[in-house]
């Protein structure tokens, strides 16, 4: 793919900010609107933008299939794993109270961790879904854009 140079430069400049914003949304979810899911989506949008400008192949070079699948799994496992910690502490599943010295901090840690899990899974899943569509060879020739 050979897009305009300006587009590529702008995209390159914009991308770090998008990702930064995503991270902000991820960590700021406790205090304002946002959280893992929104952050994950923004991450994915960032990757999509990257793919639109540099081509999907370039994106799959950075994020090949195994990485994306591992990401999807890692998020779920992080979430469930955080829940399991409570189980092994004699509490119930997803009880974060035991994650830190006092229950309030435990809750904060727990929420942070599970939101991270959500973010990772959503970002990699959305990217994977996009890539799956984008790498499929279009076979349309009956109409024009």
């Amino acid at each position: 793919m050979h897009h305009h140079l300006i587009l590529r430069v702008v995209a390159k400049l914009l991308l770090p900010f998008i990702l930064l914003y995503a991270l902000y949304v991820q960590w700021h979810g406790d205090y304002g609107p946002g959280g893992g899911f929104q952050a994950g989506v923004i991450f994915a949008v960032g990757f999509v933008l990257y793919a639109l400008v540099y081509g999907v192949d370039e994106l799959t070079r950075i994020l090949p299939r195994p990485v994306l699948i591992t990401g999807m799994i890692a998020g779920v496992i992080l979430y469930a794993g955080t829940g399991l910690v409570g189980l092994f502490q004699g509490l119930t599943f997803l009880d974060y109270n035991g994650l830190a010295a006092d229950s309030r901090h435990g809750q904060e840690w727990g929420i942070l961790l599970v939101e991270l899990g959500v973010g990772i899974t959503v970002a990699s899943s959305m990217t994977a879904i996009f890539v799956a569509f984008a790498t499929r060879e279009p076979d349309i020739d009956d109409e024009d854009w």
Partner: peptide, 26 residues
Amino acid sequence: GIPNVVTAVLASYRGFDTLGETTVIF
């Protein structure tokens, strides 16, 4: 100790729904 109640409910009180939601995306 979290000000955003939505996040607290989402990730803690009804955290299991959110695990389900993550699984749905997966």
